[in-house]
């Protein structure tokens, strides 16, 4: 059932959603200045980023530039620092050294309203799903709008404007969970809650999407569907997607580019086409 729902709605809902949010149709402004030399503008740039927790160094000297509309797979062993790096990129935790630029703004220096409006253009699917228990699935998805339109109206689907509610329903359709809208979020299976977290991250049509092991709790078919959904966001809407995965085959198939973290360094930064599965396995030794 979810297979059908995802595949059929990804194509149709692009136009449906545009009726609700016409601004989303507009071409995204092209970054200028330092990055104009590149063919495609840079959405994410890390310069010599380091992170330590107390005395424990997680990684250092991490630098990369990700172009708009790239699909990037971030791979590495358990504890390599993938989730931590994503948190640093979003400014959820401070970097210990270096700087992060997101959509042309420096996240690592932004604060208050500037940081919030930056985050509002970015979606995050966290590894632990992090749905709010006791609230309905639909309310959880409506929360995805809190960054763009703060306040009471997006606290619950009951108060939400019609446009937000129907956009949230569309997002749920995309992940095949429209029938679960009124279900309590703590009564979902692991895979269902992962897909609700994905709906919450894409509902406000972010320009950049970070997905931390988006397929970890999904069965093989649902996992394919979700990767397919991300792939379409990249191809059709020019969203920059960074996902982490322990599935080497997924990483190579859906990533245009692979970043590999190992032993506290960025050991690998190459196009997927130039890599073979055994190159990636080397990261886990």
């Amino acid at each position: 059932m979810p297979t059908r729902a995802i595949l059929s709605s990804t194509t149709s809902s692009v136009t449906d959603l545009d009726l609700i949010d016409p601004a989303a149709r507009q071409a995204r402004p092209v970054a200028t200045g330092a990055h104009s030399a590149l063919v495609s503008p840079v959405d994410i740039e890390a310069r010599e980023v380091a992170k330590t927790f107390g005395d424990t160094a997680i990684f250092d000297g991490v630098s990369f530039r990700l172009a708009r509309g790239e699909a990037v797979a971030l791979v590495g062993a358990n504890g390599a620092g993938k989730s931590t790096l994503l948190r640093c990129l979003m400014g959820l935790i401070p970097v210990s050294a270096g700087s992060v630029h997101l959509l042309g703004e420096e996240t690592s220096a932004a604060q208050g309203t500037a940081l919030r409006s930056l985050r509002a253009q970015v979606g995050l699917v966290s590894q632990k799903h992090n749905l709010v228990p006791r609230l309905s699935v639909l309310s959880n998805v409506v929360h995805g709008f809190l960054g763009k339109s703060p306040g009471l109206r997006h606290w619950s689907h009951m108060l939400a404007p019609d446009a937000s509610r129907s956009a949230a329903m569309h997002a749920l359709e995309k992940v095949g969970l429209a029938d679960f809208a009124t279900r309590r979020a703590d009564r979902l299976s692991g895979g269902q809650s992962q897909r609700v977290a994905i709906a919450r991250a894409i509902v406000s049509r972010p320009k950049v999407l970070f997905a931390d092991e988006p397929c970890a709790s999904l069965d093989p078919s649902a996992g394919e569907d979700v990767m397919e959904l991300f792939f379409r966001l990249v191809k059709d809407e020019g969203v920059t997607v960074v996902f982490t995965s322990h599935n080497i085959e997924h990483a190579l198939r859906f990533g245009d580019r692979i970043l590999g973290l190992s032993n506290g360094k960025l050991q690998l930064d190459a196009t997927a086409a130039s890599l073979s599965p055994s190159d990636l396995r080397g990261l886990y030794d």
Partner: peptide, 18 residues
């Protein structure tokens, strides 16, 4: 959940309420 809502760009007060 609070961290994930912070990541959407929500204000502190909205994160607390939601």
């Amino acid at each position: 959940p609070a961290e994930s809502l912070t990541a959407t760009g929500a204000r502190k007060i909205d994160v607390v309420a939601c």
